[in-house]
Computed example of a mutant assay.
Amino acid sequence: MEAFRLFFKDGIGVYSGHVATTKLHAHHATEIIYCTQGQHKIIDNSGKENFSVLSIIPHDIKHQFSCHGNSIPVFIFMDPFHQFSERLKQTYQLDKEIIGLQKLPNEQIMNEFKHWIMGKEIDVMHYTRLLVDQLTGHHTYSTQSDQRIVNSIQHIKESLSQEMRIEDMASKVHLSASRYAHLFKEHVGIPFRRYILWARMQSTVESIILGNSLTIACYDGGFSDLPHFSKTFTEMFGVAPSSVLKG
């Protein structure tokens, strides 16, 4: 069995490894959690315990995860602007509540993730899409995306190593900063600055997976230094980057 598996591409991140527990944390992604054996436990910010075989966690919700025995967790992170997140939000009315399911949506799909954990190469994006299809009843939702925000997202992803001010982004699309901030959060689901931080995290992790050193990946991703990246990673995922990343 692989020590850990990690996939990060096009707004989707999937991690699996021996993580028995995490600290209380929150990140800017919609998350699906599944364990290979039995239930896992999610504790929310109020201390409420949720036991389930599959959890769906809205973005920016503080939570703590734990599983026991030989069970291996699979964490699937989805950019809040990604169509998979949009579909889950609309199906489960995701807002502040953690969704816990007591039955897996499709054993065959989950077995493919088990094979991936064991070292088999699979099309992770394809099976993530199939899982979301199962969870949302195969529904395809059409979202009314504002092209100004779509263009902004693209610009952010192309400019991560640069300083980005909301006033400058608003000016590019001929809006006031306050109107732009409202429109951005309405369409993306999280505020402008938080999205930039999440985009920088995605870019840095993708760069590390491609074989770049942690220092180069952090610099290209827009983090000021390694401690800044490490602190942000731990706050977002509840574990230190050294425990899940090589670089």
Rank of each mutant, 00 (worst) to 15 (best):
Q108T: 11
R129T: 07
F8G: 03
P80A: 01
H174D: 11
A29W: 00
T128R: 03
H28V: 03
E158W: 15
L226S: 12
L6C: 08
C67H: 14
S52I: 00
A3R: 04
F75S: 01
E206T: 10
H115T: 02
E31N: 10
S203F: 07
L197T: 15
R165C: 07
P80Y: 11
C67R: 15
H82Y: 08
F84K: 11
H18L: 07
V132Q: 05
E167N: 11
G137Y: 06
D168W: 00
P80K: 14
F4S: 12
P227W: 15
E49A: 01
G38D: 02
F7I: 01
D133T: 07
I190C: 04
F51H: 09
I153Y: 12
L88I: 05
S142R: 04
S152L: 14
F233W: 05
C218V: 15
P73Y: 04
H155M: 12
S242R: 15
F192W: 12
S242P: 09
S85C: 07
K103E: 10
Q162G: 02
Q154L: 09
S142Y: 14
H59Q: 10
E158K: 15
H174A: 13
D220Y: 15
H18C: 03
Q144K: 03
L131A: 06
I98M: 04
A3H: 06
E167I: 09
H115Q: 06
Y15M: 07
V74A: 02
D44G: 00
D146H: 15
Q134N: 13
R148W: 03
P191H: 13
K96V: 04
K185W: 05
F75I: 00
S178R: 13
I109K: 10
L6H: 13
F51I: 02
E206Y: 09
